[in-house]
Every structure is written in structure tokens, then in C-alpha cells.
């Protein structure tokens, strides 16, 4: 499949944003690290900027971006529509959380005078968390339900999308904590390392699956003949590449994909994991270690996502 940059950017940026919002919401529910409203607000803004940047990028993939609102209507059957609906609804608790924290910073603003919203913080946090996760699950399901693309029609496609979203949100969350001068708890750091390496394992399982995956239909099946009939191309249907060949017939050389998988494994999972361990061993390097982890993770995620598209083969290529 053609690796469209708008979609790669969307899934990586919004994924990280929703991951961060999910963690922030979760921390609001359990009241774990409610350090200060100012820091919470900053994190929320970072999450919303990531989410919004990704969503804006995704609309540039559309032929008619001005009609994007129509995509909210078919949630009964379409995962893409469901993703859109959840993406929009997620803004509601997120913005309310922001208002609560703004009110806490400057009580004179009195944004909520009728009732004390602060006592509903856990509801808003929980809603933000669940809706963020739901949005990412919908993103994964768009790909995981396409039977025409065996590389995506797979049990692990959605779990990996979700895990990578949470992991990237988690590493950013730790980085912002370090930035504000808070020392990250060793258990939290170890949790990050665990999630990163779990994602690495799942990704390797996924890549092994992709290497073995098959269309399940032959060229003969594609034109209606008995499966084992030998079918060779004789006359092309057209002499130059058409939409189908550009969009669905994208090919990446095997040697390239091996190298890029190795690069993605290091940058996305191993280096960030090592950086987090460095933070554990040498707390004075916490900030620089965490920053390196974030940068490396994003380089890795972009590579991983590029491969996710470029390596996926579409069954329509059987005709070509």
C-alpha cells in the first residue's frame, strides 16, 4: 500500500496525543500524580496539540477535506466513521478538564459557578481516558478489518496500534514530568521499559506474520478459473501506471524492509528502553535521557508506520 505521509503523521501524532490524554485522564481518576494544575494543563495542551495536528494532517489525505464532517454519519458500519465520532467526542471531557485546571490556577475566573466541577474530576478523567483509547482502537480496526490486505487483517494489528499509542504517550508524559523537575519513580520507569519491550516483541511477531501471510487467492481465483490453473500476464490492461497500481501496488524491496525493520526496532523500542534504564541508573541524566527517548521513539514510530503501509500487499495486485 502507498505509504501516504498524511496518514503516517496522523496515526503517529494523534496516537501519541491520545496515549498522553489517556494517561493524564487515568492519573486524574486515581488521583495519583495530581502535582499541580499548571503542569496538568500543560500536559493536556500538549496532548490536544498532538491530537489536533494529527487530525488536521489526516484531512489532507482527503480529496474533499471541506466535506470531512460528513464522515461522522456512518458509525453503524464504518470504523473510519466511528474513529471520527470518538475523535470529536474526546474533545469534550478534554476541554472540560482544561477548564477545571484553569479554574484551579486562577479561581477568579469562575468558569463554573453553578456547581463544583472539580469534584467530578475523576469522571472527566475517566471519560477522556476511555474515549482516547476507543479512538485509537477504531483507528486500528479500520486496518484490521480489511480482508483485502492480509498484512493488516490480523489479530495483533489493533493491539499494536493501541500499545504504541499508549507507549508513546507514556514516554512523553515522563518527559514532561522530568521537564518540570519531578523525579520519575523507578517503578514508573520500569513500567515504561516493560511496555516498550512488550511492543517490540509484538511487532516482531507481527513482522514474522507479514512475511508468511498470503492472499489465500491465486491469480487464477482472481479471474474465476480453478485455483491451480497457471495464469501469466500477456497483454497489460494499460501501459502506464494507474491509480490502483500507485495506491495498492506499492512495493518495497525485501533488503530495504529488513534494514528498516532493524532501524525501527532500535529507534522505536531498544534505544528508548535503554534511555529509560539510564534514567534509572543515573537520575542526574533524567532529562537528557528522557528527551533522547522521545526523539528516538518518534523517529522509530514514523519508520514503523511507513513500513506498516509499504509492506502491506493488496489482493488487487493479483490482476497485475
Amino acid at each position: 500500500m502507498n505509504p501516504a505521509y498524511s496518514v503516517i503523521l496522523f496515526t503517529v501524532l494523534s496516537g501519541a496525543g491520545y496515549g498522553l490524554l489517556a494517561i493524564l485522564g487515568f492519573s486524574a481518576v486515581v488521583g495519583l500524580v495530581m502535582i499541580s494544575p499548571a503542569i496538568n494543563l500543560t500536559m493536556l495542551v500538549v496532548a490536544l496539540v498532538l491530537i489536533t495536528a494529527g487530525l488536521v494532517s489526516s484531512t489532507s489525505h482527503l480529496g474533499r477535506p471541506e466535506r470531512a464532517w460528513r464522515a461522522l454519519s456512518q458509525w453503524r458500519t464504518s470504523w473510519l466513521s466511528r474513529e471520527g465520532v470518538f475523535a470529536v467526542i474526546t474533545y469534550v471531557p478534554a476541554v472540560l478538564l482544561g477548564i477545571v485546571w484553569i479554574t484551579e490556577i486562577s479561581p477568579n475566573l469562575r468558569l463554573f459557578t453553578l456547581f463544583n466541577v472539580s469534584s467530578y474530576l475523576w469522571v472527566l478523567g475517566g471519560a477522556g481516558s476511555i474515549l482516547s483509547i476507543a479512538t485509537v482502537i477504531c483507528t486500528g480496526q479500520i486496518y484490521a478489518t480489511l480482508r483485502t490486505i492480509p498484512a493488516w487483517y490480523y489479530l495483533l494489528t489493533t493491539p499494536i496500534y493501541l500499545l504504541l499509542s499508549v507507549v508513546s504517550g507514556f514516554v512523553i508524559w515522563m518527559f514532561l514530568m522530568s521537564l518540570f523537575g519531578y523525579k520519575t519513580e523507578p517503578t514508573v520507569i520500569l513500567m515504561g521499559v516493560f511496555l516498550l519491550e512488550l511492543a517490540l516483541i509484538l511487532k516482531w511477531v507481527y513482522w514474522r506474520y507479514v512475511d508468511r501471510s498470503d492472499f489465500g487467492v491465486t491469480k487464477a481465483d482472481a479471474i474465476g478459473f480453478a485455483s491451480l490453473t497457471k495464469v501469466q500476464n500477456l497483454e497489460p490492461a494499460h501501459q502506464t501506471k494507474n491509480y490502483l497500481m500507485r495506491e495498492m501496488g506499492y512495493q518495497v524491496a525485501r533488503s530495504h524492509s529488513v534494514r528498516l525493520r532493524r532501524f525501527a526496532s532500535w529507534t522505536c523500542f531498544i534505544i528508548p528502553g535503554l534511555c529509560l534504564l539510564l534514567m534509572l541508573l543515573a537520575p542526574s541524566y533524567q532529562l537528557i535521557g528522557n528527551m533522547t527517548a522521545v526523539v528516538s521513539l518518534f523517529v522509530g514510530l514514523l519508520t514503523e508506520r511507513w513500513l506498516f503501509f509499504a509492506e502491506a500487499k493488496h489482493v488487487v495486485t493479483r490482476y497485475y
Binding site: 480529496g63 474533499r64 464522515a71 480482508r147 490502483l244
Partner: peptide, 18 residues
């Protein structure tokens, strides 16, 4: 139609073009 191209991804027969 918003031109998201998802229908062309879902079609195994290459029946839809952008």
C-alpha cells in the same frame, strides 16, 4: 464523497478509482 479512498482499499477487484 470525501475522497478518503477507503472503499478502494476494501475492494478486492480494483473496481474503484480515485
Amino acid at each position: 464523497c470525501i475522497g478518503c479512498k477507503l472503499c478502494s482499499w476494501a475492494c478486492p477487484y480494483g473496481a474503484r478509482e480515485y
